[in-house]
Structure formats: C-alpha cells, structure tokens
Simulated assay, not measured.
Amino acid sequence: MIQYQNEVGPIVTGAKQNVCQGQRIWRKYGPLYESTKSVIAEQSLRASNLWNSTQKVIHQRADQVQQTKNTIDEEQRIINARLEQFFSVQHSPQLRSCYKQYERQVASLNRQLIDKYKVCSQSLDTILEHFEEEIVLEANFMSIASGEIEKLTKLCKVWQLKQLSYNHMGVLLCTVSGIGGINQRLATSLELCRDILLEMSPEDLNTPGCRTYQQLKMQFDQVYVDIQSCIEESQ
C-alpha cells in the first residue's frame, strides 16, 4: 500500500502542476480574447470570399463585352476582305458580269455596314466604360473589407482582453460595432455590384446598333453567297 502511494504520488502531483499551469495560461489570456480573435478572423475570411467570388463575376462580365467586340471586329474584317475582292479590277469578263449584277446592292450594304459597325462598337465601348466606372466605385470597398476587419485587432486593442485590468467592454463594443459597420457597407456594395452586373447580361450587349449591324451582315452574307453561285455557274 505504501509502495502504491509512493508510485502514484509524483504522477498526481505532476498532473496537478500541469492543470494549474493550464489554468494560469487560460486565466492569462481567457476565452474572451481567443473568441474575439476567432470572430475577427472568420469575418475577415467571409469578406475575402465575397470579394473573390464577386471579382470573378466582374471579370467574366468584362470578358463578355470584350469578346462581343472581338466578334464584331472579326466579322467586319471578313466583310472588308470580301469587299476588296468584290471591287478588285482583276476579274475576268464572266466574273465582272456577276459582280455587276450586285454592284448597287453591295455598295449600299457597305455604307450601312460601316455606319452600324461604328455605332455598335461605340455602344459596346460605352457599356464597358460605364461598367468599369461604376463597378470600381462599388467594388473598391469590397476589395479592402477583409483587411479593414483585420485592422480591428489593433484599432480596438484586442490584446487588452488578455488582462483583467483593462476595460473589456470597451474592446468588445469597438470590435462588434466595427465588424457591424464594415459588414453593412459590404452588404450595400455587394447589392449595388450585383445590380450593375445584372445590367451586363448578353441581352443588354445586343444594343439597337448591334442588332441592326447583324441584320445588315446577314443580308451581305446572302448577297455574297448569291455572287459565289453566279461565279460557279459562269465557270
């Protein structure tokens, strides 16, 4: 019995020492400090994730406008190449006869296509510029919100929660109100960004000028097919 007590005694004593040491550390920092730091980290991560997802959509919308512009530019390049071919003087009498049949129609479509191409391109430029101006204003805060929340650690002096001698209530009020204010601004910016992004749907990119351009292009394509058929028949 005495031997058992002697063997267990040091273990129990060591365990008590570890518990006491843990309690001293816990009393030193406390759950208030750790939980406050955790809340700040979680809210900062949330703001960062919101910005990352919004930024992804912003880039997608901007790319849509640019792709639409690139498509229009490529279509006009093809039209110009066909017009050069049409107005070339190096044609046989048979080919000139085919081109002559459609000369007025091609000339009229050419003038209209050039005009509507400019209108369409300018409308897309305006949409992109308007989008970038508005989205920059609203997205700017979203991009820094995560960092602003992290700054609350120093701004609100969260380190004071480690010690009982400081005003914990003031620290907590500063932290809670700070996070609340940032989240409110973040929610407003997010809503406005979503409204702006909704205006960048594919339907909105199909402006009146671009619709007219596409209609004229279809007419030109049909005339080009008719000319090619005439050429094939004359050979």
Rank of each mutant, 00 (worst) to 15 (best):
K157P: 06
Q76C: 03
Y99P: 02
L186K: 00
G170M: 08
H59S: 08
Q94K: 15
C20R: 03
R104T: 01
L109A: 03
R185E: 12
R104L: 04
C20V: 05
I79H: 00
P202R: 02
K28Y: 07
A145D: 10
I11D: 09
L161R: 12
K154R: 14
F86D: 10
S189D: 02
C156D: 12
Y29G: 06
C193Y: 01
K118F: 07
K217L: 15
G147Q: 00
K28E: 14
I2F: 06
V136M: 10
Y33N: 14
A62K: 01
T153W: 08
A107S: 15
G209D: 08
S201P: 08
L190P: 07
F220A: 05
E203G: 00
Q17H: 00
E84P: 00
A107M: 12
L197M: 15
K118M: 10
K37W: 13
Q85Y: 04
S38H: 13
Y224N: 15
Q67I: 02
E148T: 07
V12A: 10
V171N: 13
R104D: 03
V171G: 12
S53Q: 14
V8H: 09
Y4S: 12
A81P: 08
L109S: 04
I127N: 01
W26P: 01
E103L: 03
L124G: 01
N52W: 03
Q122F: 09
C230K: 12
E84H: 02
Q219K: 08
Q222P: 02
F131D: 04
L83A: 00
R27W: 01
N6R: 13
S234T: 09
I196M: 09
E129S: 13
L128G: 03
I149P: 09
N70R: 07
D115F: 11
D73S: 08
S92Q: 12
V119W: 02
I196W: 07
L45Q: 10
R46K: 14
M169Q: 14
S165Y: 12
L216Q: 04
L124S: 05
I79M: 06
S97F: 01
Q55C: 09
W26N: 09
Q235D: 12
A47T: 03
V19N: 08
S97C: 00
E129P: 07
D125L: 00
Q76T: 04
E148I: 00
T36R: 14
G178M: 05
K151G: 06
K162A: 11
M1A: 13
K154Q: 14
Q5W: 05
S38W: 08
